[in-house]
């Protein structure tokens, strides 16, 4: 079976890869592109560990076929920091101890960024529902929600100043 050639933009850089027609975008990112930040926790769209943003939409990359990425713009956790400067969410997760094992963390960060991009000042309830597609089994979500609140405050303050 011949492989499919895909051209897209990943984390701001032009990217190309070959994939099988039936391959998931998650597998292509991990195995063909070499970006292993997105994780497979379930493969059925239930855990959110593979969260990415494609053309502005938060998606489980395990539910997207890799050829569908043709011509799209994709952001993953690897693109969140600018050089050595962490995104405020990353910094707040670190300072707020919002990760324990850390395997769900990339998905949470991507989903939380997508949330704040469209709702910069979410309530606690909006954060909880905004992140309800991501499973964490370690933290009980308390410190994750608090970290997102802290990052939202920080981002809003920066934008206003």
């Amino acid at each position: 079976m011949s492989r499919v050639h895909v051209t897209c933009t990943i984390n701001g850089d032009p990217a190309e890869f070959l994939c099988d027609g039936g391959q998931t975008l998650l597998d292509a990112l991990r195995d063909e592109v070499g970006l292993t930040g997105a994780k497979e926790g379930c493969g059925t769209g239930d855990c959110g560990a593979c969260s990415i943003v494609m053309d502005g939409r938060l998606l489980c990359s395990c539910l997207v076929l890799a050829p569908e990425a043709e011509g799209t713009t994709i952001s993953t956790v690897e693109g969140m920091a600018s050089g050595d400067d962490l995104h405020p969410l990353q910094q707040c997760f670190l300072e707020g101890a919002a990760l324990q094992c850390g395997v769900c963390t990339p998905g949470f960060l991507v989903a939380a960024k997508a949330l704040l991009d469209r709702n910069p000042e979410p309530t606690e309830t909006e954060i909880r529902y905004g992140l309800a597609g991501n499973l964490c089994r370690c933290t009980g979500y308390d410190k994750i929600v608090r970290a997102v609140q802290a990052a939202a405050t920080q981002i809003t303050a920066t934008n206003e100043s």
């Binding site: 991990r30 292993t36 690897e78 962490l86 990353q90 670190l94 300072e95 101890a97 990760l99 850390g102």
Partner: peptide
């Protein structure tokens, strides 16, 4: 309450779990 030493790797997607 220092920032954990392995934290940076884990918030940037660089930490290597078994399937990585």
């Amino acid at each position: 309450r220092p920032v954990r030493h392995d934290g940076l790797e884990k918030v940037t997607g660089r930490a290597r779990f078994a399937a990585d």
